[in-house]
Computed example of a mutant assay.
Amino acid sequence: MSESCLGNKTQVVTLRVPSELKNRLEQQAKFQGVSLNNLANYLLTTQLSQLETLASIEQRLRTKNLSNLKQKIALLLDKVPHNPNVPEWDQL
């Protein structure tokens, strides 16, 4: 589907990146079978979404009382049934 079909407007942005990074991006795009542009858009979108989500969580946490949150988590964890077959590396 073309971008015009989706109603998305695009703009050309010139980025200066180190040659090594450009080479790595080109290799990964080729490996994934997509264009460098598509890969860059995907990576930028996913990373930006993660940053926005973290900022939102941090904003919400600023209004909360840390000791109350710890108590609520402890109560939740107390409800989890004990399983003696959990590997040591996966225990709290």
Rank of each mutant, 00 (worst) to 15 (best):
T46I: 13
N8T: 02
I73D: 07
T10F: 03
L54P: 00
N23C: 04
P87V: 01
L51N: 01
L21V: 14
W89S: 13
W89H: 14
T46M: 08
P87K: 06
S19D: 14
L66M: 07
A55G: 09
Q28R: 13
V13Q: 14
P87M: 05
L48Q: 12
N37L: 00
N37A: 15
V80N: 01
E58C: 03
Q32V: 00
T45P: 00
T63M: 08
L6W: 04
L75A: 13
E58D: 11
L54Y: 06
T14W: 01
F31W: 04
D78E: 15
V12L: 08
K30M: 05
C5R: 09
L6N: 06
S49W: 01
L36E: 03
S2E: 11
L77G: 03
G7C: 06
T63Y: 06
E52L: 13
L6Y: 04
C5P: 00
Q47I: 01
N38T: 13
E88C: 01
S67D: 15
L36M: 05
R62V: 05
A55E: 15
T46R: 15
Q27W: 03
N83C: 10
N38V: 09
L76S: 03
N83T: 03
V86A: 01
G7P: 03
T45A: 15
L25G: 02
S4K: 11
R62E: 12
L61D: 02
Q91E: 08
S35Q: 08
T10S: 12
Q91K: 14
K30R: 10
E3K: 08
L51K: 07
I73G: 07
L54I: 02
L15T: 08
E52Q: 13
V80C: 02
Q47P: 00
P87S: 03
E3D: 14
L75W: 06
L51Q: 07
L77Y: 10
P81E: 06
N85G: 04
S19V: 12
R60I: 09
L44C: 13
P18E: 11
E20L: 05
L54C: 02
S2F: 06
K9E: 14
R60F: 08
K72N: 08
P81G: 07
E58I: 04
L92G: 05
L39W: 00
I73V: 15
L66W: 06
L36W: 02
F31I: 05
G7Q: 08
L6P: 00
K30E: 11
V86S: 02
P87H: 05
T53A: 06
W89T: 05
L77F: 12
Q28L: 14
L15Y: 08
T45V: 10
L61N: 04
Q59Y: 10
K30T: 10
V17C: 03
A55N: 13
N68P: 00
G33L: 10
K72T: 12
L54E: 07
A29F: 04
E52V: 10
V80Q: 05
V13T: 15
N8S: 01
L15D: 01
N68I: 02
L48W: 10
L36P: 00
T46C: 04
K72W: 06
S2I: 10
L66E: 13
L92E: 12
K70Q: 14
V13A: 15
K70R: 14
K64T: 13
V17P: 00
E52F: 05
N41H: 09
N68G: 01
E26A: 15
K72R: 12
